[in-house]
């Protein structure tokens, strides 16, 4: 039986993980209460949750060299954590090595795939991920990589094939919603339904689903509703960089002063892509103005 399947032992912890309820993943599930075969997946999920919470170093130090050697899953986790804490070529090389040696291991696929995709090698990441055996996590990752490459068409294909075998699974819904956010039109509304359902359900709410809800509302021009949702997300996690970044966007649209938020974003995540992007654009602006040579009347 598929341990992640709807009746499997892992379904709840896995769902919590997908819903972004990382604290719940760490606190509400006791590994010892699961059957032996599921101990490792639980461990991996919990490590990933820790990474998502920014506790990379704890994860790295928790996995010993010998563990990493004997278990490719843990090796992948360690590589993943170290890349997230500080992107390095070593980690990428290690990820590539894992991708070579244990390409049929799901954890390796997911985590090494993430590292590869992040390191600017989406092609290898996709190659590795294509080997998955019906894992929705892999599908979701593939969809995201396609989308980040602006290949909505391929993402749609991937999601469609996943829907055919996984029906109405949460991850499929999410992946479709991500795609919908690119397609626009009615799909905004559909995506909103999915995000909202997650964000407003008392058992599924998390900052990240609230942010997703807010983003979808923002795209539909529902600024006030988006603001409400974002503020809820910020109330849950005031340091959440995605929430701050989107709040910054929202305030810009609303015509508010955003200097304060930009400062805040810098303080919570100075490497946030938005900041990098804006800095690059400022430079681009300067470069573009250089072509003009205005004369001023004294």
């Amino acid at each position: 039986m598929d341990p992640f399947g709807s009746e499997g032992e892992l379904v709840n912890i896995h769902t919590a993980f997908i819903q972004g309820q990382y604290q719940s993943v760490l606190n509400d599930f006791d590994a010892s209460s699961f059957s032996d075969s599921n101990k490792l997946p639980i461990q991996v999920l919990q490590y990933r949750a820790q990474c998502a919470l920014g506790q990379h170093d704890e994860v790295i130090s928790a996995i010993s060299d010998s563990d990493a050697k004997s278990t490719p899953d843990l090796a992948a986790v360690r590589t993943y954590a170290s890349y997230l804490s500080k992107p390095s070529d070593a980690a990428v090389t290690e990820a590539k090595r894992l991708a070579e040696s244990s390409s049929d291991n799901l954890t390796v696929q997911l985590l090494a795939g993430t590292v590869l995709a992040r390191s600017g090698d989406p092609e290898s990441a996709l190659q590795l991920l294509q080997k998955h055996q019906g894992s929705l996590d892999a599908v979701a990752l593939i969809v995201q990589i396609h989308l980040s490459q602006n290949r909505t068409d391929l993402a749609v294909k991937e999601a469609r094939s996943a829907r055919s075998f996984a029906q109405d699974a949460l991850l499929v819904n999410l992946a479709e919603s991500w795609i919908g956010m690119r397609q626009g039109g009615d799909n905004y509304q559909k995506a909103f339904y999915v995000f909202e359902e997650l964000a407003q359900g008392p058992s599924s709410a998390s900052a990240s689903s609230l942010i997703a809800q807010a983003v979808s509302e923002l795209h539909m021009g529902r600024i006030e509703e988006a603001e409400t949702a974002l503020n809820q997300a910020l109330a849950l996690e005031p340091e959440n960089s995605a929430a701050v970044a989107n709040k910054l966007v929202l305030d810009t649209i609303a015509g508010k002063d955003t200097a304060e938020l930009e400062k805040k974003l810098t303080s919570v995540d100075k490497e946030h892509e938005m900041l990098a992007d804006l800095a690059a654009k400022r430079e681009a602006f300067q470069a573009a103005t250089a072509k003009y040579n205005p004369k001023f009347e004294p």
């Binding site: 998502a52 996590d137 690119r182 795209h219 970044a245 966007v249 892509e273």
Partner: peptide, 20 residues
């Protein structure tokens, strides 16, 4: 700045940029 939102997707991956 007003036309790009950041949608958190898979944990570990950078957020998906969407265009308003």
């Amino acid at each position: 700045q007003a036309t790009r939102t950041y949608l958190p997707a898979n944990p570990g991956m950078p957020p998906l940029v969407n265009y308003v």
